[in-house]
Amino acid sequence: MNIIPGFFYSKNDEWVEVKGTKATVGITDFAQNSLSDIVFVEISVSEGDHVEASDLIGTVESVKAASDVYTPVAGVVVAANESVIDNPELINADPFGKAWLIQVENEDGIDTSGLMNAEEYKTYCEGRG
């Protein structure tokens, strides 16, 4: 299982990469692996929407499960990844890279309090077998 150092992680298996006042959000390798083949991705927010931490931003669906995705951080949505909507299998192939879901910006800075770091997330995943 892959975990990227330097990213932040939520208990719902989303990751956040922070660069200045911008953050990129996606779902983790652990999440894609337990869902198996992803067949559908819906992003339910669009550019300009204001999101709070834990707001629903979309759904990821495999043949055996559908999982809601929440943003772990607050901000204004500045981009939604169109290519992952067209190619849901990207999530299985590259969950931390090409399969990012949204980018948000927050001029007051990205608040990552309450999120796990890579080490903590690794322990969290191992605890779930």
């Binding site: 043949v63 055996k64 499960a65 559908a66 809601d68």
Partner: peptide, 14 residues
Amino acid sequence: LTLTAREQHIRREK
């Protein structure tokens, strides 16, 4: 049967 991930036996209360 397809798109079954939407249905009650998988999504339950959702």
